[in-house]
């Protein structure tokens, strides 16, 4: 990145928000807004993002922003879009940014409605794989064998027994023009995808893998490191889908075993301490391998999307 003058004057998401140390979500949002520019209205359902940006009188949002409830982010966004259309405000666009609790679980019906109608909303899920705002409870986005506070590992429990819900595929099945996954590890790639999504009209979806030091259990300086390992292991496939077809993937430069990802986080600690843990790790490895296979993350062809250190 070249030297340029940057300060809070240029930020649309300014300092003083109350996210935890090293919060991946706040970092993602900063870069989302850099990509969208200022002419967007942002809708945020209840969750971490809402909580750490909404204490009365202290808003970091330099774009118009609305939080209403937990399960209705997409419907609120639809309402804003309808109002803009009615008022012929064509230069303003609507972006919804929610967590996995609101997106995968409680707001899923609302989201499906918005997608099916094709409302002109870019919906971004900043996915940290559990309900972090309330201390890390299981969501349908939590990865298999992760320990969460409502599905904790214990003598008779390995944590969550189900796989993460494959939401991008479900969303693509609605027939929307653009679906992408991104990671806080690759911020330029993230920005590029947001910009690309803004080039489409209709309902669009981006899912950003967002690491959470506080609940995943890793030091706050390793937010990007852990996210990178997620991508490099195949646990977090990065791809784009246009009109239902996978059109672009971010290749894995050097594949790492899933252990290298899992061992960085306390939420997977139990599968390493357990004598039978190998089996669980193998199951997770098989999932990563199937991602790699499904999306062609390791093909020998030159990376379509050159690896860039952000």
């Amino acid at each position: 990145m070249s030297t340029q003058n940057l300060s809070n004057d240029q930020e649309l998401f300014v300092s003083g928000h109350r996210a935890c140390h090293g919060c991946g979500m706040s970092l993602a949002v900063r870069h989302i807004l850099k990509a969208t520019g200022k002419d967007v209205i942002v809708v945020t359902p209840t969750g971490c993002l809402e909580t750490f940006t909404s204490p009365y009188g202290y808003s970091p949002w330099r774009v118009p922003w609305i939080h209403h409830l937990f399960e209705n982010g997409p419907a609120i966004a639809t309402g804003v879009v309808a109002a803009l259309k009615a008022q012929k405000r064509e230069s303003e666009r609507v972006v919804a940014i929610g967590g996995d609790g609101s997106t995968f679980d409680i707001g899923f019906g609302s989201l499906s409605g918005m997608l099916e109608r094709g409302d002109d909303v870019l919906y971004i899920c900043v996915d940290n794989g559990a309900y972090m705002n309330t201390g890390g409870q299981r969501s349908s986005a939590s990865p298999i064998y992760s320990s969460t506070t409502t599905d904790p590992a214990g003598k008779r429990s390995l944590g969550k027994l189900q796989k993460k819900k494959d939401l991008p595929t479900i969303i693509a099945a609605h027939g929307v023009p653009y679906v992408a996954t991104a990671s806080v590890a690759y911020l330029k790639d993230l920005q590029k995808k947001v910009k690309k999504a803004m080039g489409y009209h209709g309902a669009r979806y981006i899912q950003i893998d967002s690491t959470c030091p506080s609940v995943w259990g890793f030091p706050s300086d390793q937010t990007l490191e852990v996210a990178r390992r997620g991508v490099q292991s195949g646990m977090v496939p990065l791809f784009e889908m246009e009109d239902g077809e996978v059109t672009k993937v971010r290749k894995i430069k050097k594949k790492i075993p899933v252990e290298e990802y899992l061992k960085t986080q306390k939420r997977f600690k139990h599968i390493f301490s357990d004598a039978d843990g190998r089996e669980e790790i193998q199951t997770i490895q098989a999932l990563a391998d199937s991602n790699i296979e499904r999306y062609g993350l390791l093909k020998k062809t030159a990376p379509q999307d050159a690896e860039v250190q952000d």
């Binding site: 990145m1 300060s7 300092s15 996210a19 937010t223």
Partner: peptide, 19 residues
């Protein structure tokens, strides 16, 4: 002066002032 620190700060707390 690569700018990584500016980019990765979740709190928008690293700025560039001239050089």
């Amino acid at each position: 002066a690569c700018g990584v620190c500016v980019s990765v700060c979740p709190d928008s707390a690293v700025h560039v002032k001239g050089e």
